[in-house]
Design a protein around this nucleic acid. Structure first.
Lengths: 213, 213
DNA sequence: TCAAAGACTATACAAACGTGCAATAACTAT
DNA sequence: ATAGTTATTGCACGTTTGTATAGTCTTTGA
């Protein structure tokens, strides 16, 4: 239809405003995302924000959705990819959860800013749970597949506990890897994550090749 | 306000104002800590805040110091205690880092709120680094002592990597344990942390007794 | 070519913000 | 008792906040 072009324009502007919002939040925290600061960061007038978003809160919620998208995209790509070897799948999932594009102080700042709002904003809490619960439960099938391929059998409760431990070590390594260091690179944390997974699951994991993803 | 007021020692009043500040931040995020909201939460007038704190920012900084104190107190107590067995020391440190009083959604909210401000506020960043770096390096001697007691020798780099992995899994378990769940208790996360430590370090650890700390 | 639509600007406004300050009530020392 | 100190109040000021609204500029469809 001919109104597709118009819609496309609006979508681009919305995305640009969301990006400006994230810039403000990463820089000054959630209270830095004022309509005036966001408008200035996007190079538009104050009134335009209310033209694209009914309220400022809606804009911030959209910025939160975008943050979750950025955080989960690499993992989702691994889960969607058709990789035969369960060991390879697990190793790539670990790498996608710790390193690469999400190992970034800016993303950590955004994550913390929204995290601190979950108590205050029920809608934000709803968005969080909707994205976090699937992520948390994505480790169990990965582990189960590896164990099946090894011909080992674990009690269901044991798999659940291992998944919690794996999620924890990956989250902790992501967090530490985001903070600026002089010694370690984010790739070092990926390597530590793989070693930790080998120790926790008592398996050998392939090291991901140099190709991205 | 009432026409008569109770007078307080300056130190007590400051502590009460800090507590009220933390209440506001945990509830509404960092932007919820307005002078009016804090004054209302503490049951005092607006002007009193400026009498005890030169600026509102100073009050928030003090609230951050208090948060760090709450977070590190249990670990510090373990490190200060005279426990002969290195294995027992390590196990108690792990327990103090994951469970007990710091396994609390309120503390997680506070931690996230301040975390999101580190980019914006250099003084806050300074306070963070001053407390975080010692905490991060407290795992290495604990691990080294356990290994020495076992008669095992690890390369220095290997100890460093194990300490990073241990810190990560403990931080991740603390984080997950703070979030409200129906299934697991914070004590379950402590148990998973101890199991993970045993797998990572390939040692057996004693389970802490029921006595607190 | 021209009216309709909508993306966009400019400005105004009430509420909430941090801070300044004079007045007051409660404690302390003598 | 009384003077001095200070914890505390109450209010006012200028600034910043989100939102509302009227008007301008650009694009679109026939």
């Amino acid at each position: 239809m001919s109104d597709t072009f118009r819609r496309m324009q609006e979508f681009d502007r919305r995305a640009e405003l969301v990006r400006a919002t994230l810039d403000c939040i990463a820089d000054k925290g959630i209270q830095g995302a004022t309509v005036r600061a966001v408008a200035a960061a996007a190079g538009v007038s104050i009134g335009l924000i209310r033209h694209h978003f009914e309220t400022k809160e809606n804009m911030v919620l959209e910025a939160y959705r975008e943050t979750i998208r950025m955080l989960t995209a690499p993992c989702d790509r691994v889960l969607a990819a058709e990789i035969e070897s369960p060991h390879e799948r697990l190793a790539r999932f670990i790498r996608a959860s710790i390193g690469g594009e999400i190992s970034d102080l800016r993303i950590l700042s955004l994550w913390a800013a929204f995290m601190s709002q979950l108590n205050a904003d029920p809608e934000m809490k709803r968005i969080h749970d909707e994205a976090h619960l699937p992520y948390r439960s994505s480790f169990e099938p990965l582990i189960r597949a590896v164990m099946a391929a090894e011909g080992r059998h674990l009690a269901p409760g044991e798999v659940a506990r291992l998944a919690i431990a794996m999620t924890a070590v990956i989250d902790g390594l992501w967090l530490e890897g985001c903070l600026p260091k002089q010694a370690e690179t984010s790739e070092d944390y990926v390597a530590i994550g793989l070693e930790a997974a080998e120790a926790l699951l008592r398996v050998a994991l392939p090291r991901p090749t140099n190709t991205k993803d």
